[in-house]
Amino acid sequence: MFTVTTTQHRGKQQREQQDALFDGTRTVQSLNHPVSCNAHHTKGLLIAVADGVSVSPHPDLASRYWMDMLAQTQHSHSFDARLLRQIHSQMCKKMARGETYGSSTTLVAASIKNNLCTILNVGDSRAYHINTQGDWQQLSHDHTVLNEFIASGQAQSDEDYADIYSGLAHCLVADEGAFDFAIARAEKSLAVGECILLCSDGVHDVLSAEVLQQSFKEYPPRECVTHWRKQILRMGAPDNFSIVLAQLESLA
């Protein structure tokens, strides 16, 4: 059994909601989705967050497309890189033409079966594992230009660089020529009471890792989502933001 808590907002400086999330049951793409909590009496769960790339033509359509497609395939396909590439191919057939050509999004998704969680991500939307002591581990990988440079030895992880290098190196683009995107994969076994957090960069660019972690030590998991939402709005919410927090309640 899982408890899934979600929230979403367009951000105070945005006209539209470019994010989309999947809460295990439905796709949400709302200008203002208040904190919602649902129980899932199942041994399997799929959750996801997609953050449309604002400089692309229709980021809202791209993010929504990925959530809807994952929802359709959650019970009939294996959860792996091949699935993402199949959905990308379908995205290109549908959107890689006319005014939607080039529409783009990031993606982070978690498939939990029994107590094994598999994370897949493209871009900089993130997944964290949180244990019952409130200790955090980032499971996703930020596909940014800076991280590409660090991996190739052209930059150092302990040095500061200009903000331009925080731009995306990989994302999901409605372009048949953009098929070689990187996919990060991670696995984590969950104990009862532990959580998986998925969020767009409208969360982790505003609230530091230290702030997120400290909140989890002060509030129960479901109340944390409410607390984070209030903090982000109080700090101006410059970007769309989405949060999906799944807690493993029991293995029965």
Rank of each mutant, 00 (worst) to 15 (best):
A127W: 03
P220Q: 15
L172N: 00
H75P: 00
G134S: 04
I232W: 00
D60P: 04
K12N: 15
Q72V: 09
D160Y: 14
M1D: 12
D201M: 06
K12R: 12
Y165L: 14
Y65V: 04
V173I: 11
V4M: 13
H227Q: 14
K12C: 12
I243W: 07
A186C: 05
D163H: 13
E148M: 10
G202T: 05
D60W: 00
H33W: 12
G153S: 08
D239H: 06
G236C: 11
M67V: 04
Q154F: 13
N240S: 06
G177K: 04
G98K: 01
Q214R: 14
T25W: 11
F241V: 07
M67A: 04
L31Q: 10
L190E: 02
L107I: 12
S157I: 14
P34Y: 05
K43S: 15
T5V: 14
F216V: 13
A39H: 15
Q138Y: 02
T5D: 09
Q138H: 03
D51K: 03
L198H: 12
R185Y: 06
R10A: 10
F216P: 06
L190S: 03
I87V: 11
V225R: 03
Y101N: 05
D158E: 13
A184S: 15
H75V: 01
F241T: 08
E249Q: 13
C224R: 08
P59L: 03
V203M: 02
A178P: 01
K93C: 07
Q154N: 11
A151I: 08
R126N: 02
L45P: 10
A186M: 03
Y219C: 14
P34G: 11
M95S: 01
L146I: 10
A50K: 06
F149G: 08
G11M: 00
T226Y: 13
Q214I: 06
D163N: 14
N121V: 06
A178L: 02
L233A: 11
D180I: 01
G24C: 11
S56D: 01
L197Q: 10
L21K: 08
I130E: 05
H40S: 09
A209R: 10
K113L: 05
A39N: 15
S152G: 02
S36F: 08
K188Q: 14
H143Q: 08
L84R: 03
C195Y: 09
F216Q: 15
H41E: 15
G193R: 06
S78K: 05
S30P: 03
A209I: 10
H141Y: 15
A109N: 05
H204Q: 07
D23H: 07
K188G: 07
K43P: 10
D135L: 10
L245M: 10
L168S: 03
L21E: 05
L83T: 02
Q86D: 11
S242N: 04
T106K: 00
Y101I: 02
C92H: 00
M1W: 08
M235L: 15
A252H: 14
T3M: 15
Q17N: 13
E159G: 01
H9F: 09
D68S: 08
S157N: 12
L45H: 06
S54H: 00
K230H: 12
N240G: 07
C171H: 01
Q90F: 09
E16M: 06
